[in-house]
């Protein structure tokens, strides 16, 4: 299958530095293929280049070297710019700074209006998207009456109204309270399940990454780990060395393993950890 997002040997440096200074390399020879329908979490500490990478998937930034393909289109093809942006929608961190209109439904309609979709079709898709994120009852509210989580869901609705193949979310839950985080994460997971949209979720919450199908760890502009969450989080030392945490259950199991207890190294969730420890205790019991 052809990947929906594909970065081939991508390097990037911001060129707004003073001339004599060599601009620091933010992305360093990244190659990454994301297949249709995947739910990929991207992890990395602050300044590791996650947002910069995300902006390449939307032709906001163009690689200094290498190529990025979105839905098979090279992002350097200027006349396909709007095809690219329609294929890969983007949601940002601050829910306040990405809503344009003063009424929820008008905001959801914004992208479709820009694309020149006929009015009746806009209406249909706006209602559909608002229902999909569970914000239909709020369609006539003004954004500042909504909670952070609700605003973020409206922003997501504004993107899925474009019917994108893929959606890139840049730390969408970083500014939300636990309740809002839960709502938004649930909506994101639904995107993949119900609508078959490919999801790229940039996050620094390990529990969010644990729920994904594939975790990509970025450090200093390089992909250092890429694989299913169980496999990636089993590299506890490596993750800690680049300033990242692992899910709490994984960490507990790891600490116990360090002390010589025989626990599996691919524990992700609390229940698994509890079961493994129970099993260990039973074995311990039997042997005495």
């Amino acid at each position: 299958m052809e990947p929906i997002l594909s970065a081939r040997d991508v390097s990037f440096a911001y060129d707004n530095y003073e001339e004599k200074q060599l601009p620091p390399i933010v992305l360093d020879d990244i190659s990454l293929d994301i297949q249709p329908g995947e739910f990929v979490a991207v992890l990395g500490h602050n300044g590791s280049g996650k947002s910069t990478l995300a902006k390449h998937f939307n032709a906001i930034l163009l690689p200094t070297a290498g190529t990025v393909y979105v839905n098979g289109i090279n992002t350097k093809e200027e006349d396909r710019l709007y095809d690219i942006r329609q294929s890969a929608g983007m949601v940002f961190q601050n829910p306040d700074n990405q809503l344009v209109a003063t009424i929820v439904e008008e905001d959801v309609a914004f992208a479709l209006e820009n694309l020149g979709v006929p009015p009746e079709e806009i209406r249909r898709r706006v209602d559909e998207s608002l229902k999909a994120v569970g914000m239909y009852e709020y369609r006539e509210h003004s954004p500042h009456q909504l909670s952070g989580g609700q605003k973020q869901r409206v922003a997501i609705a504004g993107i899925i109204a474009m019917r994108p193949k893929c959606i890139v979310l840049d730390e969408p839950t970083a500014m939300l309270d636990p309740q809002g985080r839960k709502e938004v994460l649930q909506t994101i997971r639904q995107l993949g399940g119900q609508f078959g949209i490919t999801v790229v979720l940039i996050t620094h919450y390990m529990d969010e990454a644990a729920q994904s199908g594939r975790v990509v760890v970025v450090d200093n502009g390089k992909v250092i780990l890429d694989g299913p969450p169980r496999q990636v989080f089993s590299h506890v030392e490596l993750l800690k060395s680049v300033g990242l945490d692992v899910p709490q259950a994984t960490e507990l199991a790891w600490l116990l393993r360090q002390d010589g207890y025989n626990l599996p190294d691919d524990i992700l969730f609390e229940e698994e950890c509890v079961q493994a420890i129970e099993k260990l205790l039973e074995e311990h019991h039997v042997s005495h």
């Binding site: 939307n58 929608g89 983007m90 940002f92 914004f110 992208a111 209006e113 694309l115 020149g116 474009m162």
Partner: peptide
């Protein structure tokens, strides 16, 4: 965010 949602002034806007 507006750019990402394909804003380009009122060219072809409905």
């Amino acid at each position: 965010a507006m750019e990402c949602r394909c804003y380009r002034g009122d060219v072809g806007r409905t």
